[in-house]
């Protein structure tokens, strides 16, 4: 079933036309990977889905993105509620300079979703979902910076899960991590897809093949090819896709 429906999306940063007429339908409870060489606009496409692009000066967007049939670029949309529903994990782990507990509790507090005992329960549940609970349960009050890079990234995932989102956006979540930490995150991504709609940006073709059900290939701001991962990798329809997958450029 379609969860996110992107129609004729165009994004400019000042004079720079970053995304050109991108139309794409993303399935519910599946992992969709957006891949392409750097500078092709894949992060911008991801950040269009929770309207984070507009926090940058000089950004202009046309077109529509429907989530469950509702256009998120409609004037009546509450952008803060949208960002609660559409969680995001960044390229570099970015825990806040607070304790492990407070990091996960942050979103719950700003949305006034829980306090007291309830808050502690939600935090525990989110950390378990992000496969981090066992490693941090005895040190919840320590600084988030005391965690390793991979743990920090899973903390950021837990923080996004805490506010009960429907969609999780991951922007090259493993690019700053070692292979073992990367593997843990990839396993986690597969598990998350059972409950959430997961969209991951990656410049790593193998990663896209490993974790995704559907893959979109973006080049110079245009959607070149989109389909089930297996089909795209085994039998790409577009010559550019084939050349990218075989490592001719990227």
């Amino acid at each position: 079933m379609a969860k996110v429906d992107i129609r004729k999306l165009n994004v400019w940063f000042k004079e720079n036309h970053v995304l050109k007429d991108v139309t794409l339908t993303i399935k519910e409870n599946a992992v969709t990977a957006i891949m392409g060489p750097s500078g092709c606009g894949k992060s911008t496409l991801l950040r269009a889905i929770n309207r984070m692009n507009e926090t940058i000066d000089g950004c202009r967007t046309t077109g529509e993105i429907y989530i469950d049939g509702q256009n998120i670029y409609d004037g009546s949309i509450d952008v803060y509620e949208l960002r609660r529903r559409v969680g995001m994990v960044f390229q570099k782990p970015n825990p806040l300079p607070k304790s492990i507990f407070e990091n996960v509790a942050f979103g719950l507090k700003i949305h006034k979703m829980a306090d007291g005992q309830k808050l502690a329960e939600f935090v525990e549940k989110s950390l378990k979902e992000a496969a981090l609970w066992e490693e941090v349960k005895d040190r919840l009050n320590e600084s988030a910076f005391s965690l390793s890079g991979g743990q920090q990234q899973r903390l950021c995932i837990a923080r996004a899960l805490a506010v009960n989102p429907e969609i999780i956006l991951l922007d090259e979540p493993c690019s700053a991590l070692d292979p073992i930490a990367t593997q843990k995150i990839e396993t986690l991504i597969r598990e998350l897809a059972e409950k959430y709609t997961v969209i991951i940006v990656t410049h790593n073709v193998q990663q896209a093949a490993r974790v995704s059900d559907y893959v979109a290939f973006l080049y110079l701001g245009k959607l070149i090819e989109y389909g089930p991962t297996k089909r795209v990798f085994e039998n790409p329809e577009n010559e550019l896709t084939e050349r990218y997958l075989t490592g001719e450029f990227g």
């Binding site: 929770n50 984070m52 926090t55 803060y80 509620e81 949208l82 960002r83 609660r84 969680g87 995001m88 960044f90 570099k92 970015n94 825990p95 806040l96 300079p97 942050f106 979103g107 507090k109 700003i110 949305h111 950021c156 923080r159 996004a160 506010v163």
Partner: peptide, 20 residues
């Protein structure tokens, strides 16, 4: 990155300033 973390969780500008 701190500010983006808060904003992406749905914090308003003021909440981001006050809490981060």
């Amino acid at each position: 990155e701190y500010k983006e973390a808060a904003l992406a969780l749905g914090a308003t500008k003021w909440q981001t300033v006050k809490d981060v």
